[in-house]
Nucleic acid binder design. Structure first.
Lengths: 341, 341
DNA sequence: AATACGTGCGCACTCGATTGAGCATTAACA
DNA sequence: TGTTAATGCTCAATCGAGTGCGCACGTATT
C-alpha cells in the first residue's frame, strides 16, 4: 500500500490530537481557533510527509465521496468518449473523480450499474439511459439522489438533463438534402427505445412534410445505433426497385456501416449519393463524399452535465433542499457541417 | 441518499447480531457454523430489501475497494477509448469498477492523479505514462502497490506491462511502402518522451536500412501525438523541394492532421501518395486512399492489462508475495491492414 | 456429578476520517 | 478575590462493515 500516513501519525508526531489535525487540514483552523503556529506546524508536517487523506474514510464519515458515476451505453463510441473526456475534466477541476460504466444499451446492466455506483458512494450520476424503462431513475429522484440524464430524455420524467435538439437538427439535415433536390431520402434509424432515435425520426418526417415529399416505409430502416444496423439498412436500400437519392444516418456508427456497405455496391447511383448524418468524425473532411452532418457539442454536453450535477450535489445538505429546486432542461444546438458540397 | 439499508437494519429486524449478518452475507455461514435456517432468513431479508453493502465501508475496513484506476493521456482518443471499454468490461466481470483519468501527457497531472486514485482506495492502477520520468511509478513498486503500464514502456523499470510490438509493426508498415516502390518515405512522429514514439521511429529507420534507403532528416517531423502535429508535419513536407513519395504517420491523430492538410494541397503528387499509419479507424475502408495501417488490438490490450493487474491484486494478502512474482511483459502483435492497394 | 466438547452466535475493537460537546488555562472585569 | 469569558485544544462517538476472541447452552463422556 502506498497509502501510509494517517492523520493520527501527524497528530502523534506533533503532540496534538487528531481533531486538531483534521480541523487544520480541512481549513477550519480559524473557525476553531487553532493557534496559527500550531496550524502552521501541522500544515508543514502534512506537506513534508505528503499526507493524502483517505477518501474512503472521509466518504464514509461525511457521506460525500467526491466521486461521480458516468453511465453510457458504450464508452468506445467517440460521441460518448468525448463526453467522458469533458466530464472528467470538469469533474477533476472540482476535485471529483469519475467512475465510468458501459451499459451496452442493456436495461438490466444499467440498473445493476446504478446500484453499484451508489454503493461505491458516488455523489451523483450522469446517465445516458437505455430505456424504455426509467423506474430506477424515478426512484433515485424520490430518494433525492442527484442525477442528470444525457443525450436521452424521458417525456414523463422531469429531471435535470442535457441533450441536443435532435428533432430540429434532423430536420435541418434532411432539409439540406431536400434543397439539393433529393426526393427519396432514406432513413437509417437507431434504437427506438431512446428519445434520441425517436426525435430524429420525427425531424426527418417533419422535413419531408415541409418539403412536400412522401414518407415511404420501404426507405426506412429502424434497428439500433450500431455499425451492423447501418450495414443492414444499406443492404435493404440496395434491394429497392427505386433507389433512394439521399440517405439519413441517425448516428456515427450507422453512418459507417452504411458507407461500408455502399462501398462494395455498384458505383451508380450509390457512389455519389448525398448523405446526412448525426455526429462528426475527423475523417469526414477527407472522405470525398457529399456529406452533411450535425456535429454534436460533446464537450459542452459533458461539461454541462457535470455542472448541473455538481450544482445539485453541492447545494446544501444532502436530502432536503436540492429536490425542491426546479430541474434544468438543457437543449443544446448542433452545428451543421457540410463536406463535399 | 439511496443508500439506506445497512447490515444493522437487517440484524435488528431479524433479532440477530450484525456479526452474524455480515458472516452470512459474505458467504462464511458454514465456516462460522451459522444455523442454516438463520442464514436462510438473513439471505431472504437481504434479498427482499435489496441490500447493497457500502463499498466505502468495506473498502475502509478491508483495504480492498474493488476499484481500479485507469490513467491515459486522453480518453477521447479512440485508441484509449477502446482500451477503456475493454478494461471496464473485464473489470466489471470481476466486480471491479474503473475510475478513469486523462493526464493530457502532463507528468504533473499524472502524478497528481496517481495520488488521487490511491487516496480513493484504488486497488491498482493501469497507466499509460506520459514520461519521461517514472519515479512515481518506481515508488509505487517499492511500496508493493500493483500497477500495469500500457502502451508505453520504460527500459529501466521492470514492471507488468502490455504493449504492441511498435518497432516491428512500424518496420512492417514502412516495408509495405518500400515494396510498393517508395524511395522517399517521410515520418511524422509523436511525443518522443514515450517509448511508443521512439520505437516507431526505430522501426522506420530499420525498414529504411533494410530497403537500402537513405534516412533524410528533412522528411522527419517529430512533435506529439496530435492532429496539429500531423498538420504541421504535412506542412513541412509540402515545402520540400523534392516531395516524399510515401508518408508514415505515427498514430491516428497525426494521420488525420496529415490528411487534412494534404486535402488542401495541389493534387499532384499528394493526392495519390500512399500512407502508412498506426491505428485503425472505421472510415479508412471508405476513404479511397492508398493506406496501410497497423491495427492495434485495443480490446486485447485493455483486457490483458486488467487481467495482469487483477492477478497481482488478488494474489494473496496485500504487501508481501505479490512483489516477488516475476513481472509480465506482454508484447502483442498488431494486424496489418491495407486499403486501396 | 464433573469435565469435555460441539454448536450457534454476540461483544467489542478496528479501518481513517469528521464533529458536537466539553475541559483546562489565562485574561478581563466587577 | 471571585465571576465570567475568551482561547486553544481534546474526548469520544460516529459512518458501515469485518473479525479475533469468547460465552452460553446442550449433549456426550468418564
Amino acid at each position: 500500500m502506498a497509502q501510509r500516513i494517517r492523520m493520527a501519525d501527524i497528530a502523534s508526531k506533533l503532540g496534538v490530537s487528531r481533531t486538531t489535525v483534521s480541523r487544520v487540514l480541512s481549513g477550519k483552523s480559524v473557525a476553531f481557533r487553532i493557534a496559527p503556529e500550531t496550524a502552521e506546524r501541522i500544515l508543514k508536517e502534512a506537506e513534508k510527509v505528503g499526507y493524502q487523506p483517505s477518501q474512503l474514510a472521509r466518504g464514509l464519515r461525511t457521506a460525500f465521496s467526491r466521486t461521480l458515476g458516468l453511465l453510457v451505453s458504450d464508452i468506445s463510441n467517440p460521441f460518448f468518449a468525448n463526453i467522458a473526456w469533458a466530464a472528467e475534466q470538469a469533474a477533476e477541476q472540482q476535485g471529483f473523480a469519475v467512475i465510468v460504466g458501459s451499459s451496452g444499451e442493456d436495461l438490466k446492466r444499467e440498473r445493476a450499474y446504478v446500484n453499484n455506483l451508489i454503493s461505491r458512494g458516488a455523489d451523483g450520476l450522469i446517465v445516458a439511459p437505455a430505456g424504455p424503462d426509467y423506474e430506477h431513475l424515478a426512484e433515485l429522484q424520490r430518494d433525492g439522489y442527484p442525477f442528470v440524464t444525457l443525450d436521452r430524455v424521458f417525456e414523463d420524467l422531469d429531471c435535470d438533463w442535457v441533450a441536443v435538439d435532435n428533432q430540429g437538427a434532423a430536420r435541418g439535415l434532411c432539409e439540406v438534402l431536400a434543397e439539393r433536390g433529393c426526393k427519396r431520402i432514406a432513413f437509417l434509424g437507431g434504437r427506438m427505445e431512446t428519445s434520441t432515435a425517436r426525435l430524429r425520426l420525427e425531424g426527418y418526417r417533419a422535413a419531408l412534410r415541409g418539403a412536400g415529399l412522401a414518407f415511404d416505409q420501404t426507405r426506412v430502416h429502424l434497428s439500433d445505433f450500431s455499425v451492423e444496423s447501418g450495414r443492414r439498412g444499406a443492404e435493404q436500400l440496395l434491394k429497392l426497385p427505386v433507389p433512394p437519392d439521399g440517405i439519413f444516418c441517425a448516428n456515427n456508427k450507422i453512418l459507417f456501416g452504411c458507407l461500408d456497405r455502399l462501398a462494395s455496391a455498384p458505383k451508380e447511383p450509390w457512389a455519389a449519393l448525398p448523405i446526412a448524418s448525426f455526429d462528426e468524425t475527423p475523417f469526414m473532411k477527407v472522405l470525398g463524399r457529399t456529406l452533411v452532418v450535425a456535429a454534436q457539442p460533446e464537450h459542452k454536453i459533458g461539461a454541462r452535465a457535470v455542472e448541473l450535477l455538481l450544482k445539485r450535489i453541492l447545494s446544501g445538505p444532502p436530502g432536503s433542499p436540492r429536490m425542491n429546486k426546479p430541474y434544468t432542461h438543457d437543449l443544446l444546438q448542433t452545428e451543421q457541417k457540410k463536406f463535399g458540397f
